[in-house]
Design a protein around this nucleic acid. Structure first.
Length: 282
DNA sequence: CTGTGGTCCTGTATGC
DNA sequence: TGCATACAGGACCACA
């Protein structure tokens, strides 16, 4: 369940379940999700043992589980990653990739169908892992400044959706929340970002924040069993979506059928009447 | 710098 | 029924 609200739902779930827990054992069932651990699978399994988790952190879609010794277990959910906390006796879900036994008798499990995600250890990464330094602040960060980011976006020669999805400009927004934000702001995905002006850009960033905050209260967006929280529960924000996945359904504002375009090698959902393509550049 | 297209994977839905 | 194709909440890289 991998945009900011889904990752934050998982992070918060892990916070209550693993903070203060010590690792007793680790078992990697598939090497691929550990590919970013530079010292290899065996080292990954061995190096976790005896470590104690501090409070899980997040920036954008990256999450890390700091250890009290200053290193961190990095995690990215990719398209289909999940963390589950279960009894070791509970049957394994298919696509379970990594098992971590904890000192309270529970087991932390990383499950990932497509394996675009992964887990690895970041030496010294407890505060701000090196792997996350190129990722911009997300709209939930206390230091996030919408006006400042708007000024940066205003210099870009690029379409607004492309910019919203650029994790080095603002992080945490993915395809669902980009489309929902643009629908609320009545913006076509290919509107030149620089043409919008600082006020509109800042408003768009604040809208992105509120859409994701709303989704967070619903536990995120789950379309299927691939996206669930650490207890296996689904989120319910899919009931609130106005654009994403709504192709052919009437726009909740004007009734025109929602359209789907291919854009950036994925889909863009939008209302052709509320969000018309701008007639000219600039 | 901007944009495109491919790559990494598994699984489901749809169409012929 | 089988088989092929399209598509999926992401990140990264090579290349024009």
């Amino acid at each position: 369940m991998p945009e900011l609200p889904e990752v934050e739902t998982v992070r918060a779930g892990l916070e209550s379940l693993i903070t203060g827990r010590t690792v007793l054992a680790c078992s990697v069932l598939h090497p691929r999700p550990v590919r970013r651990h530079e010292r290899g699978v065996d080292d990954f399994q061995a190096t976790l043992v005896g470590r104690t988790f501090a409070t899980p952190r997040r920036r954008g879609k990256f999450m890390w589980l700091p250890f009290v010794d200053g290193d961190a277990l990095m995690a990215h959910l990719g398209m289909s990653g999940q963390f589950r906390v279960d009894s070791p006796a509970a049957p394994l879900l298919s696509n379970t990739r990594v098992l971590v036994d904890l000192d309270d008798g529970q087991q932390l499990r990383f499950v990932d169908q497509r394996m675009f995600g992964g887990v690895w250890v970041s030496p010294g990464g407890a505060d701000l892992p090196e792997e996350v330094r190129h990722i911009a602040l997300d709209p939930f960060d206390p230091h996030f400044d919408a006006v400042k980011v708007a000024h940066r976006i205003a210099l870009k020669h690029s379409g607004i959706k492309r910019v919203l999805l650029d994790q080095t400009v603002v992080s945490g927004i993915g395809n669902i929340y980009a489309d929902e934000t643009l629908w609320r702001e009545r913006l076509h995905y290919d509107t030149p970002a620089a043409s919008l002006g600082i006020r509109k850009l800042a408003a768009t960033l604040r809208t992105a924040r509120s859409v994701m905050a709303e989704a967070l209260t619903q536990g995120g967006t789950s379309f299927d069993a691939l996206y669930v929280n650490v207890n296996g529960e689904s989120g319910y924000f899919d009931r609130t979506l106005h654009a994403y996945g709504q192709e052919g359904r009437p726009c909740d504002r004007c009734g025109a059928p929602i359209r789907r375009d291919h854009f950036m090698n994925r889909s863009s959902f939008f209302c052709p009447r509320c969000q018309p393509r701008p007639r000219r550049q600039g």
